[in-house]
């Protein structure tokens, strides 16, 4: 059985607010799933139901085939969880805190010591093991939280905004850690940093207003960006007219527009050719445009293919009005 996590028609209602609305989702071993969504979209609520912290109003959450509500202790044993904000007992030292977690997770004596030391090395908190957590910097606190989630080498790792508040080096470190663990685990991370999804996730879902709006690889999502595979050409301003006419004639090009950029040199002009869209994906027009430019011998200052930004996809999907399904 490889299906590690399975959510079926999961919903959660808080009084008048439907925080999570009928989410169905499953996750296999080796997958790193990114939960994307604006603040208040229902990401944390979904994670809390999955980890057994709160009970769903309807639907089920299963971990390794076990229902979280009916087998709370067995499922919690298999999960490592970093809650939002990485709360810890601030008056303890990382050493005593991690020892406590290790004991609750069933490790004793030498095995416990080994686990604490290994995980402390992994998240690089060896130097501060004996200082009260309250006196540590935000980056260290977050890493203590991560260590807590990883200490028992869980089959399933759920992390709510694991890199929030870390500096770029620490972010890189945490992402490398997630990469390293990804092979033999099912991992869910929530984030609103979109670059993170491209950096660590093998799959991403977008949630807004409690509903699952998109599900695919980061590349799939990227393909939905309005500028995905668009070709940008920069030429001298006086050649722009000719270029525009020629670009429009290239097969596969749907439209040509000005693409002003702040850093552009004096007397240059930038045009963007957007490809026709077939079944959600833009056609590749890069080669055709390159051939055309050579034919017409238009001197080109700069030429590149845009990948589009996940930001744009995110905004397009989660915008309050006209949200489109994927």
């Amino acid at each position: 059985m490889t299906e590690k996590i399975s959510l079926k028609n999961l919903s959660k209602r808080f009084d008048a607010i439907l925080a999570v609305d009928d989410i169905t989702l499953s996750l296999n071993n080796g997958e790193v799933l990114g939960f994307l969504g604006p603040n208040g979209a229902g990401k944390s609520t979904t994670m809390r139901m999955l980890t057994g912290f709160i009970e769903p109003t309807s639907g089920t959450a299963e971990v390794c085939g076990l229902d979280v509500t009916r087998h709370p202790v067995e499922t919690k044993r298999r999960i490592g969880y970093l809650p939002e904000g990485a709360p810890t007992y601030g008056d303890m030292t990382p050493d005593s805190y991690l020892s406590f977690i290790a004991e609750i997770r069933g490790f004793d004596g030498a095995e416990k010591r080994l686990r604490v030391d290994a995980v402390a090395d992994k998240v690089d908190i060896r130097g501060v093991l004996r200082q009260p957590i309250d006196t540590l910097s935000k980056g260290f606190k977050r890493r203590v939280g991560l260590a807590q989630a990883m200490i028992h080498d869980p089959e399933i790792l759920i992390m709510d905004e694991p890199t929030d508040g870390l500096d770029p080096n620490q972010k890189h470190q945490v992402r490398a850690l997630i990469h390293e663990m990804a092979q033999d685990k099912a991992i869910i991370i929530s984030t609103h940093i979109l670059e993170e999804v491209e950096a660590v996730c093998s799959r991403a879902v977008i949630i807004a207003h409690g509903r699952l709006l998109a599900d695919g690889t980061p590349a799939d999502l990227l393909a939905q960006a309005p500028n995905h595979n668009a070709v940008v050409v920069t030429v001298d301003a006086n050649a722009a007219g000719a270029l525009r006419q020629n670009l429009e004639k290239v097969p596969g090009v749907a439209s040509v527009e000005d693409a002003p950029a702040p850093g552009l040199a004096e007397g240059k002009l930038r045009l963007r050719a957007k490809p026709e869209v077939h079944t959600g994906t833009g056609t590749d027009i890069g080669d055709a445009i390159g051939a055309m430019l050579r034919d017409k011998s238009i001197p080109v200052h700069e030429l590149f293919v845009e990948r589009g930004a996940l930001d744009d996809v995110f905004r397009q999907i989660t915008a309050p009005e006209g949200a489109s399904d994927a």
Binding site: R48, F53, V73, K76, Y81, E84, G85, P87, I104
Partner: peptide, 14 residues
């Protein structure tokens, strides 16, 4: 207040 209840109640304890 500190949110540690979320840690405690998601550990394998009843």
């Amino acid at each position: 207040k500190t949110g540690t209840i979320e840690i405690l109640m998601t550990l394998p304890v009843s």
